[in-house]
């Protein structure tokens, strides 16, 4: 309400303006009137404001230069041609961008987690991701089972024995490495190692690596070669969604710019 000039408090132009227009509430109006009585500078300001307003009200506001009345009713507004580009309301573009962005995020996250790999490739990918590198295996994991354990297991795998039925795709257990683990680079598979290795058992590290690489590569050649782990269709879909989001954003920016003009 007040502004400070030197040691005096003077009324601001906004307060004086509202005081002049009688827009202040009664209590505040009385306070301003009291301040005006005390301060000559404020009174001078108010006088100047009043003189200026009086001069403005006397500005010529004469008649229009010509009559604007219609001799005949104006023609109806021309029907605007629907624009194919940027014709839709703004929320349509914003919504399209949002939907495309959400779908893109979903597809990309599914791709990163390996959910888009086909069913026949999925176990290979899972084992590929789950299996530790040969060099990282803990000693007890890479250790060859003792002779008795190995024999017992071999016996259980023999037909006609009383032991449990042989498991075609054994679950990874502690001490038994996953047979489909990827091979270490530079270690070509050896057919001899494959022949000597009993199914479901972990051979010695070198032998195990060679056997796993060959089995893995035979069963899932495309995965082993590092090609097309995610089908091309999903890649194309990701690209299309990204393009749609980008196009929607561009259209939205153009529309906002056009509307600002």
């Amino acid at each position: 309400m007040f502004r400070f000039i030197g040691q005096h408090r003077h009324l601001r132009i906004g307060v004086l303006s509202q005081y002049q227009d009688e827009l202040l509430p009664p209590g505040r109006r009385q306070a301003v009137a009291a301040a005006l009585e005390r301060c000559q500078v404020c009174r001078q300001e108010l006088d100047q404001l009043a003189a200026m307003l009086s001069a403005m009200r006397r500005l010529p506001n004469g008649p229009a230069p010509r009559s604007f009345v219609f001799a005949a009713p104006p023609a109806p507004a021309p029907v605007a041609r629907a624009s194919l580009f940027l014709g839709a309301p703004r929320w349509v573009y914003a919504g399209a961008v949002s939907v495309a962005a959400v779908l893109l995020a979903a597809v990309v996250s599914a791709d990163l987690t390996g959910s888009l790999v086909p069913q026949d490739h999925a176990p290979a990918m899972r084992s590929f991701q789950a299996a530790p590198a040969p060099g990282e295996l803990a000693p007890q994991e890479t250790a060859v089972p003792d002779a008795g354990q190995t024999q017992g297991l071999m016996k259980s795998a023999e037909p006609g024995s009383n032991g449990p039925e042989p498991v075609e795709s054994p679950q990874p257990e502690p001490g038994i490495a996953v047979p489909l683990a990827p091979p270490a680079q530079g270690t070509p598979p050896s057919s001899e190692a494959l022949e000597t290795a009993p199914p479901g058992l972990t051979p010695a590290p070198a032998q195990e690596t060679a056997m796993n690489a060959a089995a893995w590569a035979d069963e899932y050649p495309s995965v082993a070669e590092g090609q097309a782990t995610t089908p091309l269709m999903w890649r194309v879909l990701e690209g299309l969604l990204a393009l749609a989001a980008l196009a929607g954003l561009t259209a939205l920016a153009f529309k906002m710019r056009r509307e600002r003009r």
Binding site: I13, G14, S17, Q18, L23, L49, M52, L53
Partner: peptide, 16 residues
């Protein structure tokens, strides 16, 4: 509106 009128009057007074 009040704010615009007040500021306009202030600018006008300064101009005069």
């Amino acid at each position: 509106v009040k704010s615009r009128v007040s500021r306009g009057r202030g600018s006008m007074r300064d101009y005069l």
